[in-house]
């Protein structure tokens, strides 16, 4: 077993033993959703109109919440140092880390989102669009987020900085993801938006690991 697979496995075991790590963002997702009917309007027709956008914004925020810890512990306890010492490619490592993060944040979110969209009175024909847009979109959130997490891993109050750095980069995904769901709801074609998300995903998978690898090295040069 190579160090990359060993690390993925190890991080998943850690997540399984600390369920809060992935359950808390999920709870946060649920709570943010609950705020909208309370703050704006519980009218089902109105909720149906904003459901697509609200679910996507909530998904994005809850992803952001779990990103902060992605590399922090590894930097602080010396795991990162051992990665570099192992001579394994940091590129593969970055992909592996983003994958782990997706497994514990994006994947549960994608599975739970249709259930919660029910509470937001999402139009019936938008469910598959919601599921697939999240399935394609959340890995991009993890990959781009890994760049921000790697850049801020060594910073004392990195969480806030992380949001500042990453949110502008998230906007295209939000636009296309929410629009796919919205268009499906009003019975319009939405495959185009999914196509965009898929191409962004390919791009993010090839390019972001370079940035993550570069950023991780910063935390090592002391």
């Amino acid at each position: 077993m190579s160090l990359v697979t060993a690390t993925i496995k190890r991080d998943l075991v850690i997540a399984a033993r600390n369920p809060g790590e992935w359950l808390n963002p999920l709870m946060f997702f649920l709570m943010v959703l609950a705020l909208f009917p309370l703050a704006v309007d519980p009218d089902p027709n109105f909720l149906a109109k904003i459901a697509a956008g609200v679910v996507w914004v909530a998904a994005l925020l809850s992803t952001l919440l779990s990103l902060d810890s992605l590399f922090k512990a590894d930097v602080e306890d010396g795991t990162l140092e051992q990665w570099l010492a192992s001579g394994e490619s940091l590129y593969a490592m970055a992909l592996g880390k983003a994958f782990t993060h997706w497994c514990i944040s994006g994947l549960p979110l994608t599975i739970v989102a249709p259930l919660l969209a029910l509470m937001m009175n999402l139009p019936e024909n938008a469910y598959s669009a919601l599921f697939f847009s999240l399935l394609l979109g959340t890995p991009i959130l993890s990959l781009l987020g890994a760049v921000g997490a790697a850049l801020t891993a060594g910073v004392r109050s990195g969480g806030l900085l992380l949001s500042l750095v990453i949110l502008p980069l998230y906007t295209p995904i939000l636009i296309f993801g929410a629009s796919a769901v919205y268009h499906a709801g009003i019975e319009m074609e939405y495959l185009g938006q999914l196509g965009f998300l898929a191409s962004f995903l390919c791009m993010a998978m090839t390019l972001t690991p370079f940035a993550v690898a570069g950023a991780l090295k910063l935390n090592l040069s002391r």
């Binding site: 060594g154 980069l169 940035a211 950023a215």
Partner: peptide, 28 residues
């Protein structure tokens, strides 16, 4: 994006690292 880069350019413990972090973000 500018705010993010500027924040990173001052965030790290050494000036060299801050500059590198800012550079990576500006390239992304």
């Amino acid at each position: 994006l500018y705010f993010g880069v500027m924040a990173l350019q001052q965030a790290m413990d050494t000036e060299d690292n801050s500059a590198k972090a800012g550079a990576i973000l500006s390239l992304v």
